Simulated assay, not measured.
Amino acid sequence: MDHAPHLPDPLDGLLGRADELRALRRGLARERLVTLTGTAGIGKTRLALAAAATAAGSPAGGPGARAVRLVDLDGLLDADLLACTLSRALGLPDRPGISELASLGLGLAAGPVLLVLDGCERLAGRGAATVQYLLGACPELNILAVGRRAVGLAHEHEIVLGPLAEGAATALLALRARRQGTPLPLRGSGRSDALPLCHLLDRNPLAIGLAAVQLGELSPRRLMAEIARPSGLLALQGRTAGGEAEPARNRSLRASAEWSHDLCTESEQLLWARLSVVPAGFDRAEAHRTCADELLPGHRLDTAWEGLLDGSVLLADTVGRGRYRLPALLRAYGREQLRRLAAGRHGDGSAESLRSHY
């Protein structure tokens, strides 16, 4: 394997992520397996690429460059095929007479390598075992796993990425709007419009980028009114900084939410839908009081709760200790799913009827 860093170029830099980038670099310097997790659209891949680019030129802990390889696991449908998928993506030769996994290990043991696995939520079960084997077989291998849930191995160092700070969120909105040919001043009335818009978007970088695309046709206040409508947030779509290279799930907020939804079990999907009409800042006891029934009994609800936490669907609320919330995008998608489920069981499926029932 050569040492050329096969990495996409993060076009916008990393507005407001300096502390997170330092934390990620420190983790990569100290740990063999680092996982960067967070909710849909929060900017995990962009941050990982910035950290990997640094590792490619100046690895921690030794002289010389470290080979950096990025593998997107979007198309991995079965974790049992991880070794084959990695071998093909990395262009490793076939080695007759030995297993695909052993061959992969030999290919990655040739020198210092940082392997970036984007989409590590696909690694449950056998995929995690493959990662464990590679770390044992390749002493100079480091893995940066990026996704909505951790790999689930011992000694895994997890870093959770949260929303942008207010200043960084408004700066990103202005930058993306300017690239669309729509200057957005951040002083006076411009800031008074930009800041509430960013809060409505949960200070989520993907949502901000897609909202900026609309600012060529809509004023910030009109856009806020559109987003506040039922499913208005989910309607945001367009091409952001990644252009043609952007994954399909990043070209609309609905596609991004659907990606997370498809990764959930049936019980997790049902709990997600029901929690979407519970006021933000709830705890597990409130979830039991409002969401449990014969379809979702207590023990099944607890399992689904843990799954939503692990999958970055349910987040700790910074306002109150022991409280939780759904991000704005996932709350909007959950309400849409609950209306669909409830329309067949409880009449019109309106928000008020859903709140009174659940």
Rank of each mutant, 00 (worst) to 15 (best):
188 G>A: 05
81 L>M: 08
221 R>Y: 00
341 L>H: 12
222 R>W: 09
95 R>S: 07
167 G>P: 01
218 L>H: 15
233 L>Q: 04
94 D>L: 12
76 L>E: 04
90 L>R: 14
30 R>H: 09
1 M>R: 11
176 R>D: 01
156 E>R: 06
7 L>A: 11
238 G>C: 06
304 A>N: 06
16 G>I: 06
100 E>I: 00
306 E>Q: 13
279 P>K: 00
261 H>N: 10
108 L>Q: 05
6 H>V: 04
144 L>Y: 03
148 R>F: 13
48 A>W: 07
247 P>Q: 05
260 S>Y: 09
331 R>M: 05
22 R>P: 01
243 G>Q: 13
162 G>V: 00
161 L>G: 06
214 Q>A: 15
218 L>M: 11
226 E>M: 15
150 A>M: 01
49 L>R: 02
320 G>K: 08
177 A>Q: 10
98 I>N: 03
334 G>V: 02
273 A>L: 03
148 R>V: 01
124 A>E: 11
283 D>S: 02
51 A>D: 10
150 A>P: 15
39 T>L: 11
126 R>C: 00
172 L>P: 07
141 L>Q: 09
23 A>T: 05
209 G>M: 03
55 A>S: 13
174 A>H: 11
132 Q>F: 06
77 L>G: 12
146 V>L: 14
81 L>F: 02
292 A>Q: 14
159 I>V: 13
69 R>M: 09
221 R>A: 14
23 A>M: 06
266 E>S: 13
145 A>Y: 14
146 V>A: 11
114 L>G: 09
260 S>A: 15
94 D>N: 07
202 D>H: 11
231 S>W: 07
151 V>S: 01
12 D>M: 07
151 V>A: 00
94 D>K: 06
329 L>I: 05
248 A>T: 03
120 C>R: 02
70 L>P: 07
267 S>T: 01
326 L>W: 09
146 V>E: 10
116 V>M: 12
49 L>Y: 05
338 L>I: 04
